[in-house]
């Protein structure tokens, strides 16, 4: 039952070893510069003086995308168990899921008409 997840854990350990191992390998073989200029550690802004920090407010449209994602992903979470047991449950489950998605798509249509899906 749990053996699959233990194997996944072992796999993740191996892939972490590869990820961090590469960093460690580079730590051994990489070049170290003798002179360390502060200019080298400045944020890259095409050669200009960096104007302020990049940690600033950002456009709200990304937030809208995140909300839509949550909406549709939760819907997918509901659909996955349905997909597995569909053939046991029969037509009733099919119709129920169709109704569920129709309601969801009404919301999608509303968002479309409100131009919330528009990337402006």
């Amino acid at each position: 039952m749990h053996s699959g997840w233990l194997s996944v854990f072992a796999f993740l350990v191996v892939s972490s070893l590869i990820g961090f191992g590469l960093l460690a390998a580079s730590r051994v073989i990489r070049v170290r510069s003798k002179s360390d200029s502060p200019l080298k550690h400045r944020t890259y802004e095409c050669g200009e003086e960096p104007a302020g920090l990049a940690w600033m407010q950002f456009h709200a449209r990304y937030y809208v995308v995140a909300i839509f994602f949550v909406l549709f992903d939760v819907e997918a979470v509901f659909l996955f168990p349905w997909a597995v047991v569909l053939r046991e449950l029969g037509s009733a489950a099919f119709v129920a899921a169709v109704l569920f998605v129709v309601v969801l798509m009404l919301g999608w249509l509303y968002a479309l008409r409100k131009e919330a899906l528009q990337w402006q």
């Binding site: 892939s15 972490s16 590869i18 990820g19 961090f20 590469l22 960093l23 390998a25 580079s26 730590r27 073989i29 990489r30 070049v31 170290r32 510069s33 502060p38 080298k40 550690h41 400045r42 944020t43 890259y44 960096p50 920090l53």
Partner: peptide, 24 residues
């Protein structure tokens, strides 16, 4: 791998260093 490792002064060092291995 041989290249010099440069971390920008203004960066958040912990996150900056953690992101690449996590991606891999």
């Amino acid at each position: 791998l041989q290249k010099e490792d440069i971390i920008p002064r203004d960066a958040d060092h912990a996150l900056f260093n953690l992101a690449p291995p996590l991606a891999a």
